[in-house]
Simulated assay, not measured.
Amino acid sequence: MIASLPAIVSRLRLKQLRLLIALDEHGSLHRAAERIAITQPGATKALHEIESTFGTSLFTRTSQGLEPNDLGRCVIRYARLIHSDLAHLREEMMGILQGHGGRLAVGAIMGAVPLLLRALGRLREKQPELSVEIVEDTSARLLDLIDQGRLDLAICRTSVSRRPDAYDCLCLYGEPLWVVCNPGNPLLWAERLELQDLGDCRWVVYPTNMPMRLLLEREFREAGLEFPRYPLETSSTFTTLTLLQQDPALIALLPEEVAASAARFGMLARLPLHLRSVSEPYGVISRHGASLPPPALLLLDELRLEAD
Rank of each mutant, 00 (worst) to 15 (best):
V284Q: 13
P186V: 06
H288W: 09
D197S: 02
V180W: 00
V160Q: 10
G27S: 14
L177H: 01
L14N: 11
L303F: 01
I96L: 13
E175V: 00
I2A: 05
R124K: 14
S161I: 09
L268M: 10
I285L: 14
S63T: 13
H30W: 05
S286K: 13
I50T: 13
L47R: 14
L187A: 05
A307F: 01
D165F: 03
I109H: 03
L177T: 02
S4R: 13
T39P: 02
P281N: 06
A307Y: 01
E67F: 09
I50W: 07
L268A: 01
L20D: 10
A307T: 13
S261V: 01
E194R: 08
E219M: 06
R103A: 13
V205P: 00
G111L: 04
P164V: 07
L86N: 08
L253G: 05
L298W: 11
L250S: 05
G199A: 12
E194M: 07
H30R: 15
L253H: 02
P164T: 10
E51G: 13
L187N: 00
P211A: 12
S235W: 04
E92S: 15
S235N: 13
L268P: 02
R157M: 15
D24N: 14
R103L: 14
P294S: 08
L195Q: 05
Q196C: 09
L250V: 02
W189G: 07
V75R: 05
G174W: 02
I134W: 03
P114G: 03
E133V: 11
